[in-house]
Design a protein around this nucleic acid. Structure first.
Lengths: 213, 213
DNA sequence: GTGTTTTCGCTACGGGTCGTAGCGTAATGC
DNA sequence: GCATTACGCTACGACCCGTAGCGAAAACAC
């Protein structure tokens, strides 16, 4: 069906290098200026393209920043560390490392805030950022059930709700720690978080002075 | 030291009614326009005051919205429901009710995003919004320890870290559920969340079909 | 090669918001 | 009365927005 051109139609193709330059320039501008002072004209200058090129590819600032930030989450993986606790800690530390970068901090919450009034934008965020994270939760849960660390779920609907709950708890806690409390989600914090998530508050608060400084 | 005027100095006092009108107009504008399209000129018109009056009292959009949103959290209380689980569910439901309001959704995350590049703004948010929430966690924890539902904390530093962790987990989960997943934190969800928070993931997923629809 | 199609860079523009300055007036305490 | 402060109003330059219009460049079809 498609001809030889990647886009499928004739004519001059869009420059892939320009895309990369624009998204990189957007992240750089997020670091230096933050969300509110970031202007599309400035991004165009940094990327070395015309302002009109930006508007031909993205509807506006919101969509551009979503794509620029989404690339940061490409590096998320689920390494097999042998136990559910170790798997969780590994993923959370990766997530925290991304949120520690200023371009993620300034950009992510801003677009989430905008998405409260823009369903299309929220769907774009869900598809390009959130869904990728949720897959890790799903895979980690399946692996833990195979190991026998978590009870298998009988009802499918109940299972989906549980996955959603876990996802909101994990991602929410890391985001809140990093952006609202403005303190690092370092190994010590992740360790305590994982213990509460797996065993609950009622369990012994600290195993055996493991993290007394 | 202070004279009879509330402000302490002579001259015409600031209109308290204007403050209330401005903050109310800000919330109304947040509902109708959202964060990005909210302008200070528009707020001034809605409040029936001059635009210059706004700039005399607030440094800018960020500080104004923080104060306007902070008033929403005045209603947070910690009713004694008899058990730790019931107390948690009560507070979380209150918090969720506030976050369900559009003026909180659009405003809160936007100022948090701005605060990633503005330390003074973050401190303002911490003092007027976050600290009020954290007190509930502190009070609830003390009450639960008095009841014997939670083990007492020996080390004071360890106790502070635990409170911070719980706070990030509770507030983060509700915020993420409401704003990112964009689904309501209703009673069923809060019930499941409380169970995981208290007993952990390893516990039985559902007590006895309590919430099969 | 000659056409066709699409993208790109550039300039220019009206419209909107920002944050401030200036001025006269209103409301308080001394 | 007098000093002091807050208020309403107008006007202003500066900036950014998003789009239109144009000629040139880069691909394909023939």
């Amino acid at each position: 069906m498609q001809s030889r051109t990647p886009a499928g139609r004739a004519g001059r193709p869009r420059s892939a290098a320009a895309d990369a330059a624009i998204l990189g320039a957007t992240r750089q501008a997020l670091v230096e200026l933050g969300w509110s002072k970031l202007t599309l004209g400035d991004v165009a200058v940094r990327a070395g393209v015309a302002k009109t090129t930006l508007y031909r590819r993205w509807a506006g600032k919101n969509e551009l920043v979503v794509d620029a930030v989404a690339e940061l989450f490409d590096e998320l993986t689920l390494p097999d560390r042998g136990s559910l606790a170790a798997d969780i800690e590994g993923v959370v530390l990766q997530f925290a490392a991304i949120l520690a970068r200023p371009e993620a901090r300034s950009g992510l919450m801003a677009v989430v805030a905008e998405a409260t009034r823009d369903d299309a934008l929220r769907e774009r965020i869900r598809a390009s950022i959130v869904e990728r994270q949720k897959r890790l939760v799903l895979a980690g849960r399946a692996r833990a059930q195979a190991r026998g660390e978590l009870p298998p779920e009988a009802d499918a609907r109940q299972a989906a709700r549980t996955v959603d709950l876990i996802f909101d708890m994990v991602a929410g806690a890391v985001v809140h720690r990093t952006l609202v409390s403005a303190e690092p989600a370092d190994e010590e914090w992740v360790h305590g978080f994982t213990r509460v998530l797996l065993s609950g508050l009622a369990a012994a608060p600290a195993p055996d002075g493991t993290e007394t400084s």
